[in-house]
Design a protein around this nucleic acid. Structure first.
Length: 460
RNA sequence: GUGGUUGUAGCUCAGCUGGUUAGAGCGUCGGUUUGUGGUACCGAAAGUCGCCGGUUCGAACCCGGUCUUCCACCCCA
């Protein structure tokens, strides 16, 4: 055998079953997006580098796939730059475009670019692939789909409330019970940083705090110390490490910690509003949980932060995330436009549904009736019946190649069996003479001779 | 980007401290059954042991590089 072809690491081929299952998830999400009033848009798979670079931090820049300029791209590079061997200098001069890294930044660009055509508040959804030059792991790919819904141009906290409901609606529709919608607020994190005198180290502080679940209290403190947060400040955090219990209880404790911080109090107020509304409106299957250690997400979140984790017992990272960003469009020249949005990780949801066996049987259903092909005359008669069945909305097909021996018959039956086609119709010489059809049920193995109207009725 | 891990037939995997013609199960194909699949029996095909190089009389096995898989970190859906 010749050298086998392959695909780049972190990418995948999808077979018919996989495509059907992925479409199922996307259709459910789309349906809910539309029920909540979101309109679809699409943006190009690659953007100008300026649009993307610097929006995700240094780490993000590293993970953006850059597209090499066309033509003799080295010719334009000055000798100084060329000899510098510095990627920071060389990359911009040989690459001016890059594959999109997420859907939020291109959306912000879209909003600014089309601001005069858009009615605000603008609610849009977008389901498209994104690319990251990451090292693959379970549930982590270099090409994957994001399903985003965002609202820009409204500061109302009802948006946050509706997004919690939307998460609940989608996962309920997917029969994925028991997902946990974790919520936090950047203002609370800012408030805490303020209280411990580490306002300038907010990012370092939150990144460390976020790891509490994973590495434990001691390591978190160690990391904070390494980042230059004072021991005095860290000791003030102590109550945070034991902040357990229900939403209201946690809020009460936070209030006492953040009493001196105006921004912290504002964050608490927002969380209370959302929780009160959700308690009143009620969720179907999801749970809303306050998690003050939740700090993931991009540097641009300013208010609410969301993350959805799979039901307990499923080993999978987050299956969704989002938050409010007050200033994203100002990077592109449109200040004072608040946005809030959420994202669904299609590929991870797929893995979770697969693991729990939650895909409906029906989605992989293919052809329902296969006609055995005995030759030209028989095939023509069969094709007439096939056409009528199709008009009646029944998936039907004729085996394209004729029987030339008994083995061919066997081959066609095997084909039907492999493809899980539940009915086979035999139209041979006998049936042609008698103007009837031999209908075989492939599950029971029973066969009967019928007229067309009986055939239609049997397979409907 | 850092550290580790994996790669043998279409698939899942054996293969002892390096030693003749590299094995199994499942699948595929053929036959028992020339108008009948899914279960049974018989038989067959199929592998430059990820790729390149090195050590050795001799390498699937040891060493180096590279690609790939999965995992941890970084970060994240």
């Amino acid at each position: 055998m010749a050298q086998k072809p392959g695909i780049p690491k972190g990418t995948r081929d999808f077979n018919a079953t996989e495509v059907a299952k992925r479409s199922y998830i996307m259709d459910v999400i789309k349906e809910q997006f539309q029920l909540y009033g979101f309109q679809p848009i699409e943006t190009p798979s690659f953007e100008n580098s300026d649009t993307l670079m610097g929006k995700y931090g240094d780490e993000g820049d590293r993970l953006i796939f850059k597209i090499l300029n066309s033509g003799d791209y080295l010719k334009k590079v000055s000798n100084d730059v060329y000899n510098s061997k510095s990627e920071h200098l060389i990359t911009p001069s040989i690459s001016e475009k890059a594959l999109r890294y997420d859907l939020t930044v291109p959306f912000a660009r879209y909003v600014v670019q089309h601001q005069n055509e858009i009615e605000f508040p603008f609610k849009r959804y977008q389901i498209q692939p994104v690319w990251r030059a990451d090292r693959p792991q379970k549930g982590r790919f270099r090409e994957f789909y994001q399903c985003d819904a965002d609202v820009v141009g409204s500061t109302s906290l009802f948006q946050e409330v509706e997004f919690v409901q939307l998460y609940d609606a989608v996962f309920t529709a997917l029969k994925l019970d028991g997902v946990v919608i974790k919520i936090n607020n950047r203002k609370i994190l800012s408030g805490i940083a303020e209280v411990i005198g580490a306002q300038d180290k907010l990012i370092d502080f939150t990144v460390a705090l976020d790891k509490l679940d994973k590495i434990g209290e001691d390591k978190v403190k160690e990391e904070m110390r390494n980042k230059g947060i004072s021991d005095d400040g860290i000791s003030k955090l102590q109550p945070l490490f034991y902040l357990k219990g229900d939403f209201i209880g946690q809020i009460a404790k936070l209030k006492s910690i953040l009493i001196s911080s105006e921004i912290g109090r504002k964050g608490i107020e927002e969380l209370e509003f959302i929780n009160t509304a959700i308690s009143d409106l009620k969720l179907n299957t999801a749970k809303l949980q306050l998690d003050v250690t939740l700090a993931r997400g991009l540097n641009y979140y300013t208010g609410a932060i969301f993350e959805v984790s799979a039901p307990e017992g499923v080993k999978m990272g987050s299956i969704g995330g989002g938050g409010r960003y007050d200033d994203l469009t100002s990077i592109f020249g449109k200040p004072d436009t608040s946005g809030v949005g959420i994202s669904f990780g299609l590929d991870r949801i797929y893995l979770v549904l697969e693991e729990l066996g939650l895909f409906p049987e029906a989605i992989t259903e293919t052809t329902k009736v296969l006609f055995i092909n005995f030759g030209e005359r028989e095939a023509m008669t069969s094709l007439k019946a096939v056409t009528q069945l199709r008009q009646a909305g029944i998936k039907a097909e004729l085996f394209p190649d004729a029987v030339t021996s008994g083995k061919q018959m066997k081959k066609q039956m095997t084909y039907a069996n492999r493809r899980n086609i539940p009915y086979v119709v035999v139209v041979g010489e006998e049936e042609l003479i008698n103007q009837n059809y031999s209908l075989k049920n492939m599950i029971s193995g029973q066969q009967k001779t019928v007229t067309f109207s009986m055939l239609l009725k049997s397979v409907s």
